[in-house]
Write a protein that binds this DNA or RNA. Structure first.
Lengths: 150, 150
DNA sequence: GCAACGGAGTTCCCTCAAGGAACTCGGACT
DNA sequence: AGTCCGAGTTCCTTGAGGGAACTCCGTTGC
């Protein structure tokens, strides 16, 4: 059965989780995106263990998602998003969108997103890169791709 | 692993992680989406510990992402995506898209997505729900929303 | 009627990672 | 020459994940 084949294959979801699937990693990226780029800022804002924060930052730098960059002649560093990392933040926006729709409750969303192009507070929507129509989970069929494992 | 409780943070990303942030959860959803809906199927495909699989399935059912439904007169159950769960799979498609772009390497993507509307193999793209233009991480400003903590 | 079967968990033990507090290091400022 | 501050590192405790064995319960075969 094809279905079984698909699911056994090497999987881009699993690979992505290898990069940001560990606890805290997405929140670290969120904070860096929001402008908290230094070790002490991240530790204070997240309340994460310093040990784990060190591990996460190293992991993200190793995977090319963050860049560690000195900002002083003293040994002081800040972490900035690479192109690869910025595209991961797209994923965070989709995550935030789902949380806003399903988990925000009475109070409403904690953060709003204003789109530069139109100046409006808005949300992301998933569309097909080919035809531009909405493209959601039930709008697609899965097919084995070239990188499918045997 | 996830020892710190993310659910009370005033952040839709953290709250979403509280639902699917634990290890394995996204892969469980992926498999169920792909049609592996039963305990034994999931366990065999993922190689996950039965104990952890039980925990994850219960957690996802509690959060309304999955529904546990009998499919036999014997005590046999399958897990199906709710509306809430299907919208989470949108997130998985974005995750897969990032993995395809940045991690697939020479071999190319392991899975392709054919869009029902146009019939083409394609990928998701993030657009503004308001103006329809692309909406990526660097195309937005963050503003405090009504649900922001004091 | 009784035994074997198979799916769906449950129990138990072991290991390893997260939490947390204290400690280190090194350049700069006074 | 002493202190400060950012950026980690070390060490101990605790609890979550891995894995194998065990249980439960309707059904089917004899």
């Amino acid at each position: 059965m094809q279905r079984t084949d698909f699911s056994r294959m090497a999987c881009s979801i699993a690979r992505t989780l290898d990069v940001i699937g560990e606890p805290w990693s997405p929140l670290v990226l969120r904070d860096i995106w929001a402008g908290l780029t230094r070790f002490e800022q991240l530790q204070a804002d997240l309340g994460i263990s310093r040990k784990v924060l060190t591990e996460r930052l190293n992991h993200l730098v190793e995977h090319g998602v963050l860049e560690r960059r000195p900002y002083d002649r003293r040994p002081r560093y800040e972490y900035v998003l690479t192109r690869k990392g910025t595209e991961l933040v797209d994923l965070l926006m989709v995550m935030a969108g789902w949380g806003d729709r399903w988990l925000a409750g009475e109070a409403g969303p904690p953060v709003l997103y204003r789109h530069h192009a139109c100046g409006e507070v808005s949300a992301v929507e998933l569309r097909c890169a080919h035809c531009g129509e909405p493209m959601r989970a039930d709008d697609v069929d899965l097919l084995p791709g070239p990188g499918a494992a045997a």
